[in-house]
Amino acid sequence: MSNPSPKAHLVRLAAVLVGVLVVFLIIKQMVVPDSWNYEEWYREGALALNASEPLAYGGNESCAACHQETNDELAEFKHKALSCESCHGALADHVTDGVKTAAAQVDDESTWQCLNCHEARVSKPEGFPQFDKVAIKEHTEIEEGMLCLACHTPHDPTP
């Protein structure tokens, strides 16, 4: 019986290392996404994933598609710079696939939507039209629980 080769342990070690390398490469092949970008280190498929989120807000141009008249009138109004959806809510809550599903929500039974912007706060810029709560109370004393909308048009709230 001949002695085992003095280099047998090295061969075994090399075999084990090659085996580990092969397993590593197989696992790497399996877990690295196909569209992996090695330069910037991200999965390119994630861009499409992010872009596929549904839209809720359409912008004024979407509103004008049906409400062209109102949109044209607005050009002259005080609140012309405002987005329709600031007060009327998101397009997706009103229209789905071009079909009206629900009335555009606007809170016309309380004053919060007016006061949310126009109630006086020290943090608001000086030039912004804002009214102190006490002044508003005195101003609306005529009737209990009087709404701003009773006198002011929301699209063109000139005094």
Binding site: E40, Y42, G45, L47
Partner: peptide, 18 residues
């Protein structure tokens, strides 16, 4: 895991799948 990245357009995004 490289799940958050800067997109070519400059947006910092999250890869929700990874």
């Amino acid at each position: 895991v490289g799940a958050t990245f800067k997109s070519p357009e400059g947006f910092v995004l999250v890869d929700h799948d990874y």
